[in-house]
């Protein structure tokens, strides 16, 4: 073994920004996350040239997985051209030379904040979800160490109690996004702040999901074909947002998750939240060639 064999040629910046040792650590932790679905795996979480809380966890995973042959899609709140999605997409392209796309069907790697695309993901696709708070137990236990012990003991009683209390007080479960869900029958995880509309897409999905919280330094995963069950009581069914009957005012798309746009006259109109689906729908309507893939929801119903 020579000294030369232990060194590498100097580069102004590592490929994908992260150095080899940071990538190896994330690789090791991702493998364990896949092996124990829904279990939060602590990792070092290096600083990246973006502020904490702005997708640094998702970014580190993407930077580890990326290669020049990978088509990358980045979305925020369902939209490809929102400012932070644009910023992350630009960064990923700059540090990797990987081609970017807005088309869900073309993407190999999708980094997303708060949404799962409406078009079904395939067995060869990876979804990286940005996670602000990886701990589903935080509302009932803010202390990370105690919460970890509760996961170890599968002690989710207080979680259930909280849901029960909400039903008693408000007549329904009040959780908006980030609906706590049981993965592979063992770990309760947060699916990240995706709307309740998106949680059923994770159950027995064909694609691999990696959820990564950079600030909180934890990552977890949902491998393909893994059970993801929102916590519900047998007699109070899980309810997604009442968006099934809404129509997008711009594209005419119907039966998907919508953004509500308040109007000056006190009413609201709606726009489909998955911006690329909206664009494709408009293109199809205008007679352009655009392929809308199979969607998880059909006529507003999860198939």
């Amino acid at each position: 073994m020579s000294l030369k064999s232990l060194t590498k040629t100097w580069e102004p910046m590592s490929y994908g920004f992260l150095d080899a040792s940071a990538k190896r650590e994330i690789r090791r932790k991702m493998l364990k996350a896949i092996a124990v679905p829904g279990c939060q795996i602590p990792y070092a979480s290096r600083e990246v040239p973006m502020a904490r809380g702005w997708g640094t966890g998702g970014l580190q995973v993407s930077c580890t997985l990326i290669n020049p042959g990978m088509q990358v899609k980045v979305i925020d709140q369902g939209a490809d051209d929102s400012v932070n999605a644009a910023s992350i997409r630009k960064f990923l392209a700059r540090v990797s030379g990987a081609p970017t796309t807005m088309n869900t069907l073309e993407a190999d790697l999708i980094q997303s904040r708060h949404r799962i695309p409406e078009e079904k993901l395939r067995e060869d696709q990876i979804l990286v979800l940005q996670v602000p708070n990886p701990e589903p137990l935080r509302p009932v236990q803010p202390n990370m160490s105690i919460a970890r012990q509760m996961h170890a003991d599968a002690d989710y009683g207080r979680m259930w109690l909280q849901l029960y209390e909400q039903i008693v007080r408000s007549g329904r479960v009040m959780q908006g996004a980030s609906y706590p869900s049981l993965v592979n029958g063992r770990f309760v995880m947060t699916p990240s702040p995706i709307p309740r509309w998106d949680v059923p897409k994770m159950d027995m999905a064909a694609h691999l999901t990696i959820l990564s919280a950079g600030r909180e330094k934890r990552l977890h995963a949902v491998p393909p074909y893994t059970r993801v069950e929102p916590l519900v009581f047998d007699d109070v069914p899980y309810r997604v947002e009442e968006h099934a009957a809404l129509t997008c005012s711009r594209s005419g798309a119907r039966g998907f998750f919508m953004n509500e746009i308040p109007q000056g006259d006190g009413t609201s109109t709606y726009e489909v939240s998955d911006s690329e689906l909206g664009v494709k729908t408009i293109r199809c309507r205008d007679g352009e060639a655009a392929q809308v893939g199979e969607t998880w929801y059909k006529s507003g119903e999860m198939v």
Partner: peptide, 18 residues
């Protein structure tokens, strides 16, 4: 500080859900 300023990012999906 990063988390504090991240509240400037759009949160309309989670807000809609709530």
């Amino acid at each position: 500080s990063g988390f504090c300023i991240h509240f400037k990012l759009p949160h309309y999906v989670t807000f809609q859900s709530s």
